[in-house]
Design a protein around this nucleic acid. Sequence first.
DNA 1: ATAGTTGCAAAAGTTTTGCATTGTA
DNA 2: TACAATGCAAAACTTTTGCAACTAT
Lengths: 145, 145
Amino acid sequence: MSKQMREAAAAANAQAIARLRAAGLRPTRQRLELARHLFTGPDRHVTAENLHGEVVGAGIKVSLATVYNTLHQFTGAGLLRQVVVDAARGYFDTNTGDHQHFFLEDEGTLIDIPGDAIAVSGVPQPPSGLRIDRVDVVVRVTREN
Amino acid sequence: MSKQMREAAAAANAQAIARLRAAGLRPTRQRLELARHLFTGPDRHVTAENLHGEVVGAGIKVSLATVYNTLHQFTGAGLLRQVVVDAARGYFDTNTGDHQHFFLEDEGTLIDIPGDAIAVSGVPQPPSGLRIDRVDVVVRVTREN
DNA sequence: ATAGTTGCAAAAGTTTTGCATTGTA
DNA sequence: TACAATGCAAAACTTTTGCAACTAT
């Protein structure tokens, strides 16, 4: 391993630790590895299963149950957002800001739509005693023909 | 049973049979009962489990698996629309027209929003080779405080 | 030590599938 | 009779929970 690689790995690690600490979560080995996979690099959309496969493939020992629990803890801590688009499986998005999604039904893939690109108008007043928590827009797309 | 009740029941039955035939589905006993429960009266939002509970409660013998299969057949035939709002369970809507939903996260309840009330603007061009199939809007609401 | 966390095996749900049975022509 | 369609038990998923093991004071 080169000096540069060592330094980059150490930096990613330090960043992941800081992120977990800031969120009030202890930086355990499993969480650290999951955090590094999720938060190093550009925004991502993952399912529990595909993240588990990825980290196991990288030689990390974690159970799928821990991946689920960790994804929910991260979500509760505001590090992730859950996206409901497919009845078959849950997606988690590292982009927690205001935005919407294309969902490619054939592929099971999500693509972000910036929040300032899209607007929803005419939402009626919710039933009394209830307040709007969030407005989710899912643009479902399929392969042409 | 009064004459009026008998007549109403017969009418609902005939209507259900016609609906199934038109959709190219054989009017079997199970499908008929499910169709009558779904399509008699105003529009409804059901889960497989709650529909199953309802028909079993009414003395009909159907398995939960058949309810699932039937809901999917009805959906394929255009009699129902599937609504994805909750990672935990699938909802089916008897209103197949253009409309959107409030989702009461605490209750697990759906309320229709007429399609002409609400508008989504600024949806970007989808990636090439893909066409927009549908734009779903889910207004998530929670109990105030 | 010990109070609180954590991670995972086992359990609980939900949904799908394979095939014996039933219905139709 | 043959041929397809049906309904459900069993299987396969996804997700949650209970508790033994671990951590940080």
